[in-house]
């Protein structure tokens, strides 16, 4: 059967339901959110249609700047940690026999699908005073008595790296599997050590993939919402937490919407950058 352009209205039939659902339940809510971001807030949690920029003006406050800076810094740190840990792992994984690869992939997917609540709970248990790692340190005599290792910045970072590492590996995996294995073989035959071959051959060959992965993990980490609340203190709250807080607890929908629009713009800018890098990569 040849692919052909739709000839009659009936040919468009299959498109009606999916297109309708996506338009009504994604495009319309999204548009409403943008509209609300320009609305005027009323006392008591209501808002009235208007066209004001006051919600966006609040971005200029020092508090907001602090939260934004912290969110971006946290997401960048998570992305860098994940790629540094994930790149050698994914390369080694791609060299395993297929059966073992599949087992690892199943494990990675299982961890990746875990709820943030569950990851937060699991790490808070592991870092707790009663059941946690510090008991192990006491047992081998490094610590005098067990201590709680959270809430702290380290705990937030660890939890988020835990959440994003499987994602990083699964994003890197297809690109590394497709990589020509003779590249590394050539480097080895010419006498380079595995570590030197990794840094001088593999990393440059994957430069575009690495950049794109960094950006994707950055966006993924930007969405983290519960871990900063469970494992951190209020000063570790991210933009995602602030948006929800404004929307649900402060009942300031217009301000929450304005922050969400801002977050979308940052994300879209980065996705655009990823696509650009991808295109350059294809040309090269």
């Amino acid at each position: 059967m040849k692919r052909e352009p739709p000839q009659s209205i009936a040919d468009y039939g299959p498109l009606f339901f999916p297109a309708g659902m996506l338009l009504v339940f994604f495009v319309v809510p999204f548009g409403t959110m943008i509209a609300v971001s320009f609305f005027q807030r009323q006392e008591g949690g209501f808002y009235t249609p208007a066209f004001v920029f006051s919600n966006y003006e609040r971005f200029l406050s020092a508090f907001f700047g602090g939260v934004l800076g912290f969110s971006l810094m946290l997401a960048i740190t998570v992305a860098v940690c994940c790629v540094v840990l994930g790149l050698p792992f994914t390369y080694l994984l791609s060299r395993l026999p297929r059966r073992l690869q599949v087992i690892w992939l199943v494990a990675l997917l299982s961890v990746l699908s875990l709820s943030e609540v569950i990851i937060g709970f699991a790490w808070s248990t592991l870092l707790s005073r009663t059941a946690g790692l510090s008991n192990l340190l006491v047992a081998i005599g490094i610590l005098g008595q067990p201590v709680a290792l959270f809430p702290s910045f380290g705990a937030v970072l660890t939890g988020m790296v835990y959440q994003a590492l499987p994602y990083t590996i699964l994003v890197l995996y297809p690109a590394i599997v497709r990589l020509d294995p003779t590249l590394m073989e050539a480097a080895r035959t010419l006498g380079s050590s595995p570590i030197r071959a990794f840094f001088n051959v593999l990393v440059p060959a994957l430069r575009n993939t690495i950049m794109a992965t960094l950006i994707m993990v950055f966006i993924f980490a930007l969405g983290s919402y519960l871990l900063p609340q469970i494992l951190g203190r209020p000063q570790h709250w991210t933009l995602s937490v602030l948006i929800t807080d404004q929307a649900i607890y402060q009942s300031n929908m217009p301000f929450a919407a304005a922050m969400a629009v801002f977050l979308v713009l940052v994300t879209l800018g980065l996705v655009g950058l990823t696509l650009l890098i991808g295109r350059k990569g294809e040309k090269a």
């Binding site: 319309v28 809510p29 999204f30 995602s240 977050l263």
Partner: peptide, 29 residues
């Protein structure tokens, strides 16, 4: 129908954006 690819993009968008965006959009909706 190349223009219909827009719906593919619309289907992938909510998953690519930070989840709080979809959540807030739906809450307001």
């Amino acid at each position: 129908a190349p223009w219909a690819n827009i719906f593919q993009v619309l289907g992938i968008a909510p998953f690519t954006l930070p989840p709080v965006i979809t959540a807030l959009g739906l809450l307001i909706f």
